[in-house]
Amino acid sequence: MTTPHQATFFLELEASLADCPAGGLHMELRFREQPWWDSLAALTLLAVFDTTFGKPLPVEEFMKCETLADICRLA
């Protein structure tokens, strides 16, 4: 079940990430394995998380995340 905040997070992230295919983001996506994932995508994800959920994503926890569901659990 995706919450409204999580849906907004996915939409904003998709709009902000270069080369991310439309509708390409979902909870179980292993984002680090995607061709569009790089250091700039990581900063973009941190920015969108902060904007959407109103708090920073702790970097140490973020480094352990494998899927977008892992990220959303830190919101």
């Binding site: 250091s39 900063l43 941190l46 902060d50 920073p56 994503l57 702790p58 970097v59």
Partner: peptide, 24 residues
């Protein structure tokens, strides 16, 4: 791990931590 070369007299920066600090 990202293939970047440096030694201990170089400036090192953890980009994600610095970015989060800035946002915070």
């Amino acid at each position: 791990a990202e293939g970047n070369r440096h030694h201990a007299e170089n400036l090192r920066m953890n980009g994600a931590e610095v970015f989060n600090f800035t946002l915070r």
